[in-house]
Write a protein that binds this DNA or RNA. Structure first.
Lengths: 216, 216
DNA sequence: CGATAATTTGACCGGTTGGTAAACATTACA
DNA sequence: TGTAATGTTTACCAACCGGTCAAATTATCG
């Protein structure tokens, strides 16, 4: 047999697992930096420290690599939202969701940029994922937020746009990192940037969602 | 003479101006959709309705086209921030800044995505612009916001991260349009989406920046 | 060890890409 | 109208890119 990619569900050799890991790591590096079309297989092979045909032995096409990567990233990317707990304290839940998303932007900027690149260019490969699992998850959590609002625990607001705004503000620090650094000046320590952001976003969202008397 | 690109500052013929305009329009379309490396000169030429060599007669390289486009977009992109008025009512100024940025995301999504693509991939061609004019403008407006906060007109907050959060939340509707549509479902009218966003963002920022008693 | 399967490599291929050369057409203008 | 500058097109090229192939090398295991 020549093709390891076949229906063999059993992950055969340890070497296979190692190589595929190295490839996906390299692919993440290159794809997140140059986008799908901007990345070349030779580049990925070089970063992975192997020859191009060797790489193509494990992933038969460039697209297969990209698919594997996107699927994996998209899955872990939604973990913070999944942890969003309907039974918890609303303000505490929102606060910790913001914090977790911001930590992901800090610790996994490449994953964030990979995803941003994909969506920015029309998400040709993950449209189904977005309209299916992602939408379902957001719908579920939006309902929770709406219930909190109706119970008077937070201000009444559009839960979808609330989620969008948390996504955008936090991922901004990964996706637009260059711009953020340019504006702030790079004299600032890495952590400082994220600590300030966390403090500000907490203030913004907690303040903005605070219940206030609706009487005019 | 063969090369129109030379030091002739005089915009010679009307035909030159028209063609360059058509080319930049086409380039914006293609670059914003596929990124720099994903775009091909043939594609741009086709959208512009001319042959590739003809296009290359006006812009000698793909990179020259991209540079011209980025410079122009970056300039108009900052107009809303320039209008930010220190003498105005703080809350009204912030509200109208958000509205203008959101209108730009709605009316000029290609410009937003072109810029996002560039920054996302490390902004290799505009780093100087970011660290120079952009930073200077943001510094200036951040000082204004800080003064408002110190005067007790809005809550004390980090002005830089406030600006970042307005950028990110508004541009999100252009850059991540596909995702927004997927989550909301495309049954919704285009305007509705932006009206809801405007309402939410106004609530978020005005509420979040409202002065409240600092006593614990 | 011997044999079979898994892995790795260098050489190569057809298609695409950014860009050029030069002939041809059109416009501006004396 | 003549002519020189400007604009346009056809044909083309070298480099690059994703991917293949067959041969060589290495791991696995009875």
């Amino acid at each position: 047999m020549v093709l390891p990619r076949a229906a063999k569900t059993q992950r055969r050799t340890r070497i296979q697992e190692e190589k595929e890991e190295r490839i996906l790591e390299a692919a993440l590096e290159v794809f997140s930096l140059h986008g799908y079309r901007g990345a070349t297989v030779d580049q990925i092979a070089e970063v992975a420290g192997m020859s191009k045909p060797n790489l193509l032995y494990y992933f038969r096409t460039k697209e297969a690599m990209h698919r594997a990567l996107i699927t994996r990233v998209l899955d872990t990317w939604l973990d913070p939202l999944r942890e969003f707990d309907a039974a918890g304290n609303p303000v505490a839940e929102i606060r910790s969701y913001i914090r977790r998303k911001l930590e992901m932007a800090r610790d996994f900027p490449r994953e964030s940029r990979l995803f941003a690149n994909e969506v920015l260019q029309g998400a040709p490969n993950i449209e189904d994922e977005l309209k299916g699992p992602l939408k379902a998850l957001v719908d579920e959590k939006a309902a929770v937020i709406l219930a909190w609002a109706k119970a008077g625990k937070i201000a009444k607001c559009d839960p979808y746009h609330l989620i969008f705004s948390i996504w955008s503000t936090t991922q901004h620090y990964a996706d637009f990192d260059v711009q953020v650094r340019a504006v702030l000046g790079q004299d600032q320590a890495d952590d400082g940037r994220f600590e300030d952001a966390a403090r500000f976003l907490e203030q913004l969202f907690i303040g903005g969602l605070q219940v206030r008397d609706q009487a005019s």
